[in-house]
Nucleic acid binder design. Structure first.
Lengths: 211, 211
DNA sequence: CCCTACTTGTGAAAACCGTCACAATCTAGA
DNA sequence: TCTAGATTGTGACGGTTTTCACAAGTAGGG
């Protein structure tokens, strides 16, 4: 069991295991690596290897205690506590994310919304007002925002990311199709829809050429 | 130069190189692997290796012709021609995607929208009507839909994916947080927002533990 | 024409990640 | 208590991806 250098693919799978475990819901039951692998497009050995990075939670001959492993995965992924999130950009994408149900139900609590459009500033989404970006840094620092969801046009993404870091956020979920330039102490995850579509057209084009 | 077994990470980078090249826009200019690497969080050797999978497009001592490489990447990624796309699910996510500007401007043309909510069926988005899912397979086959964007709740995602395959789509961009079970001849790309957020909280939690 | 400065393309080495195989461990039941 | 059946945890192996290093090729200047 080593605690450093966890592959990104492992983290994604852990997230998936947690989702599966939450589907079981029965108290006191157990689950084997084989069963976990079946849902999740992977192998039993992979499941065990992934978990072994963080300790040994199973019992040989029996498998894993469902509720125990679920709690352990929540700890590992850091979702055993709420996260304070700011939404930057109140456009279509921002709205879709804001109303995404899985969002709040998993402990990601939106505590502030920002937009630079004067038309939108002052409007309310649910019980949250849309703030101007004028006092952005101070506001997110005061509200103790930890994560920023960056859903603004590419042109202003770098600037707002810089200011978010200035305001003390620890992580950014970036929807703008640019590579953000920020200090390595802040984590960035990119969601690039064009890239995903291009991966699709690439794969299809390749398979057509192969025939 | 071999044409098989391209790593997924290579494809993602190609997409990124193309984005960079489109930013240059100057006709007749050249660019070195070093410059391409600088925008894009990678190394010059990686750029050259990625490109070498598909041939050799550069000139030693000079670099790559910007417009030539750009066209070549478009061919490779399959975005040198339009793609016919259907949007399945006319909720918030569907709307955000539908209005996403980079979408159409890159040749992904939405030719049909579907929803199972009778309230929504018959409405128009832009000049496109929202279809019922009753005659789904026939409609997408008739419209020669190649790609499906699946933006429906998890509960109906598998069913609609199956029907999309039935209707002849070649690729699915899946926003539902489940693993789709479909034949390998159809490509799937998953976009899982909860997973991305959990990757963020994992990374932050880890770095806090390390201190 | 030759020398210098520069950059690609690529085989080889290294690092990384997934798979395999099996000893270790556990429960149940006789 | 002992045996049979099940399943984990992990070291060793193999494949894949990245990095390295350099020969080969190009342009420009004198």
């Amino acid at each position: 069991m080593v605690r450093n250098k966890i592959p990104a693919s492992t983290v994604r799978r852990l997230s998936h295991y947690l989702r599966s475990l939450e589907g079981f819901a029965e108290e006191g039951g157990t689950v084997s690596s084989e069963e976990l692998a079946a849902r999740g497009q992977t192998t039993a050995a992979q499941v065990r290897k992934d978990l072994s990075h963080f300790g040994s939670f199973g019992k040989r001959g029996l498998g894993y205690q469902v509720d125990e492993l679920r709690d352990r995965l929540r700890q590992i992924l850091g979702v055993d506590r709420p996260w304070r999130v700011a939404l930057i950009g109140a456009g279509r994408v921002g709205l879709a994310l804001f109303e995404y149900p899985a969002f709040r139900s998993r402990g990601y609590e939106c505590v502030a919304i920002f937009d630079n459009d004067p038309e939108k500033v002052g409007q309310q989404w649910g019980d949250l007002p849309i703030h101007s970006v004028d006092d952005f840094e101070e506001t997110i620092r005061r509200l103790q925002v930890e994560l920023a969801i960056l859903a603004v046009p590419a042109a202003s993404a770098q600037e707002m990311a810089r200011r978010a870091v200035e305001g003390g956020v620890r992580g950014i979920l970036n929807f703008a199709p640019i590579r953000l330039n920020i200090p390595p102490s802040v984590t960035v995850e990119d969601v690039n829809l064009v890239m995903e579509l291009e991966a699709l057209s690439f794969a299809i084009t390749q398979s057509e050429r192969g025939e």
